[in-house]
Amino acid sequence: MENNDLYIYLKEMWHIKKRMEAIQTVATNKNSTLFQYTNIEFIMLQIRKVIEHIAMGNLVVNKDLYSKYNDKFSSNWNVKYIFKDLERLNPQFYPVPVKTDDTVKPKKWVDVDKEMYLTKQEAIKVYNKCSSLMHVSNPYGSQIDIYYYQKMIPIWYTKIMNLLNQHIIHMADREQLYCIVMNGDEDGNPHGYVFMPANQ
């Protein structure tokens, strides 16, 4: 990944970080839209955009597909189709969450249990769920259960945090791994580090 690509990817992660902070602020009642329904709708909009930022960040990593999609961004933001095309180019495009094992020397990465983070399949489902709150329900049609969303906020929030807190991106050319830390020691902002696979 070139330095410019790194900058763009980290910028996407920075936007995610700020949106997650906004979610936390409203979810913990530190700030409010003054109406519980609009609080929930605000949070769902942020979660939806977080998933879009994950997709956009991975388009940066997979530059060939980014170039192919460059003219389509204004009309195609559907994460389901972006993920589908990304997977065709790079089956390992989705972030892989890891955590650092401090009990061994040298320290090493260990996998995060799939039940703990937002998987690729879940991301698409959550995106679609959030999208259904972008419109007002027809009073004669099926009604949206706003309390379902209220119940899911802490679950989805935690799974996104567990996915991105420290994660690995596999490059399309498979020649490098890219480790992202969302809370850098220096300034608390996202930082990235390039690693070569052990068999290189």
Rank of each mutant, 00 (worst) to 15 (best):
I43T: 06
M20E: 07
S137R: 07
K125I: 14
E115G: 10
L45C: 03
L6G: 04
D85M: 07
E41M: 14
S132P: 01
L59S: 02
M152Q: 14
H53W: 07
V26F: 12
N3V: 08
L118V: 06
W14I: 08
Y9P: 02
I54W: 03
K84T: 14
Y66C: 02
M20I: 08
N165I: 08
L10Y: 04
I40S: 03
N3R: 10
D111A: 13
Y7V: 14
L177A: 04
I153C: 06
V50D: 04
N138P: 06
N62K: 09
F83K: 00
V26P: 04
V136D: 12
V126K: 01
N31M: 09
K63H: 08
V126P: 02
T25L: 12
N183Q: 07
N138S: 15
M196G: 15
N183W: 03
V136G: 10
G57I: 06
P197V: 07
D71S: 15
T100G: 08
M161D: 04
Y7P: 02
E115P: 03
P91R: 05
D111G: 11
A55T: 05
E115A: 12
Y147N: 14
L10V: 00
Y147F: 15
N4P: 02
T38C: 04
K49I: 10
K17N: 06
I155R: 12
K84L: 11
V126Y: 02
Q143P: 00
L65S: 06
Q46N: 00
L86F: 05
T103V: 06
Y140C: 11
E41K: 14
I180E: 05
E21F: 09
K107D: 13
N29R: 15
H170W: 07
D173W: 09
N31W: 02
E186Y: 11
L163S: 00
Y37I: 10
L6F: 05
Y117N: 05
Y157L: 01
M116I: 03
G57C: 01
Y157H: 00
V136T: 12
A22Q: 09
I169F: 06
H167S: 13
L59H: 07
K120Y: 03
P197H: 13
Y9C: 06
V181G: 02
